[in-house]
C-alpha cells in the first residue's frame, strides 16, 4: 500500500521559507499570491494491513514535530499512484 503523508506547519507558526518564496513570486511579477506556506511530502510503501493507528504513531513519533507541525495521511490506491 502506498501512503502519502503531508506535513505542514501549524497555522500561526511563522514560515520564513514560505515568506521568502512569496517574495520571489511577487518579484517575478505573479500577482494575487496571498500567502505561501511550505511543507513536506513523504511517500511510503507499507504492508497492506498497516492500521491508521500505526500510521498516526509514525507521524507523531518521527515524521512530524507536533510542536510546530500538523500532518495528514492519504492512502493511495494503485491507479492513483503519482508518476
Amino acid at each position: 500500500m502506498k501512503v502519502r503523508i503531508l506535513v505542514r506547519l501549524k497555522p500561526g507558526v511563522l514560515d520564513p521559507q514560505g515568506r521568502a518564496v512569496h517574495h520571489s513570486l511577487d518579484s517575478l511579477g505573479f500577482e494575487g499570491v496571498e500567502d505561501v506556506r511550505i511543507g513536506r511530502m513523504i511517500e511510503m510503501e507499507v504492508a497492506d494491513g498497516t492500521s491508521d493507528e500505526t500510521l498516526t504513531k509514525m507521524c507523531e513519533q518521527l515524521l512530524a514535530n507536533m510542536v510546530i507541525e500538523d500532518f495528514a495521511i492519504e492512502k493511495l490506491d494503485g491507479e492513483k499512484e503519482p508518476a
Binding site: 511563522l14 520564513p16 521559507q17 521568502a20 514535530n65 510542536v67 510546530i68
Partner: peptide, 17 residues
C-alpha cells in the same frame, strides 16, 4: 533535546533564512 522531548519547543529555520 527538543526533538527528544527533554526540553519543550522546537528550533526552526532562522527568520532571516
Amino acid at each position: 533535546l527538543t526533538e527528544s522531548g527533554l526540553l519543550p519547543g522546537a528550533l526552526m529555520r532562522n527568520a532571516g533564512q
